[in-house]
Amino acid sequence: MLLDRDGTLVHDVPYNGDPDAVRPTTGAREALDALRTRGVLLGVVTNQSGVGRGLLTRDQVAAVDARVEELLGPFGTWQVCPHTPEHGCACRKPAPGLVLAAAAALGVPPWRCAVIGDVGADVRAAVAAGATPVLVPTPVTRQAEVEAAPLVAPDLPAAVGALKDRLVAPAGRARGGGAA
Rank of each mutant, 00 (worst) to 15 (best):
G76I: 10
A159Q: 08
D65Q: 15
H83C: 15
D122R: 02
R53T: 14
R112E: 14
R166A: 10
L71W: 07
V61N: 03
D155C: 11
Y15H: 15
R58N: 01
P14D: 10
A128W: 09
C89G: 07
L55D: 07
A162K: 12
G120I: 08
R29Y: 11
L71E: 12
A144H: 12
A174K: 04
Q48I: 01
V44M: 06
L42N: 08
G50A: 09
N16I: 03
T37N: 08
V168T: 15
G52I: 09
R175Y: 14
A159V: 11
C113Q: 10
T132W: 14
R53A: 14
P109M: 11
V136H: 00
T8K: 03
A34M: 06
G73N: 13
V140G: 00
G117L: 12
G17I: 12
A102W: 07
P157N: 06
G7N: 08
P150F: 14
A148N: 01
T37A: 15
V136Q: 00
D122F: 06
G54C: 10
G43E: 08
R29Q: 15
L42A: 07
L35W: 08
R175A: 15
G39H: 14
A66G: 09
A103D: 09
P96R: 01
P24K: 02
V64Y: 02
D59Q: 14
A171I: 13
L156N: 02
P19E: 11
L9I: 15
L55P: 01
A125F: 07
P170C: 06
A174D: 14
A21L: 14
V134P: 02
T77Y: 01
A159I: 06
L98K: 00
R38K: 12
R173G: 04
P137R: 09
D165T: 10
R58Y: 05
A102P: 05
L9M: 10
V140M: 12
L56G: 03
Y15F: 15
V44P: 01
P110G: 11
D118S: 10
V168S: 05
A148R: 06
P170Q: 07
V68P: 00
P96I: 07
A125Y: 09
N16F: 02
L56C: 11
A114K: 02
A21Y: 12
L2M: 07
C81Y: 04
G172A: 07
T46D: 04
E69T: 14
V40A: 05
L151W: 01
R92T: 15
R175K: 13
V51Q: 02
A105L: 06
D59E: 15
L167R: 05
A34I: 08
L100H: 03
A105V: 03
D155L: 11
T132D: 13
P94T: 11
A180F: 13
P19T: 11
G76Q: 04
E147I: 06
V152W: 08
I116R: 01
D20C: 02
L135T: 00
A28D: 01
E145P: 00
L71S: 05
V115F: 14
W111Y: 14
L32C: 05
V40R: 06
V22K: 01
V136K: 00
A158W: 05
T25H: 06
A171C: 03
C113A: 10
V168W: 11
P96E: 09
T8M: 12
L9P: 04
V10Q: 02
L35E: 07
P150H: 12
I116V: 15
R29S: 15
C89E: 10
V99T: 06
P14V: 13
T25I: 12
V136L: 00
V13S: 03
V44L: 07
G76S: 04
P170K: 03
G120D: 12
